[in-house]
């Protein structure tokens, strides 16, 4: 099994639930090594951070783990703002939610079409982070 490993420079985890954050961080450790993993409580904080990085010409996150239900700015609100930021890179965004509401899945579909980034939808619980979640292509198996 050959996995084309891409160097992941920066990962954002946007979730207000400390247990989920703990889980994602733990799972990340087993698939990649990344020095720049940032945690945000809500979409607004994450958006401000990306905007600041863009303005300063710093690294834009390669991968974002995004919760849907959050205070102040939820996952959808964050996506809206992110699209408006005009980022050249293709960010891999993993939407992680415990919602099984079909409306959320529908909303994800509509966002997938207009979002220039890669948008994955993952239902909790998750036990493992796949290489594809990090933007890696599985070339052979």
């Amino acid at each position: 099994m050959f996995i084309l490993m891409k160097k992941v420079n920066c990962i954002f985890i946007v979730d207000d639930d400390p247990i989920t954050v703990f889980g994602i961080k733990k799972m990340l450790r087993s698939v990649t090594h990344c020095d720049d993993v940032q945690i945000f409580q809500n979409g607004h904080e994450a958006y401000e951070a990306i905007k600041e990085r863009q303005e300063k010409g710093e690294n834009i996150p390669d991968v974002i783990f995004l919760d849907i239900n959050m205070p102040i700015m939820d996952g959808w609100g964050f996506l809206d703002e992110l699209i408006d930021l005009d980022i050249d890179e293709h960010v891999v965004i993993n939407m992680i939610t415990s919602s099984i509401d079909p409306a959320d899945h529908k909303k994800w579909n509509s966002f997938k079409d207009r979002c220039p980034h890669i948008l994955n939808f993952k239902n909790k619980p998750i036990f493992k982070i796949e290489p594809a979640d990090l933007g890696c292509i599985n070339v052979a198996s």
């Binding site: 639930d17 247990i19 989920t20 889980g23 415990s98 909790k124 619980p125 998750i126 036990f127």
Partner: peptide, 8 residues
């Protein structure tokens, strides 16, 4: 969401 956390 809680049960998912437990499972994880």
């Amino acid at each position: 969401s809680h049960s998912a956390n437990f499972s994880m």
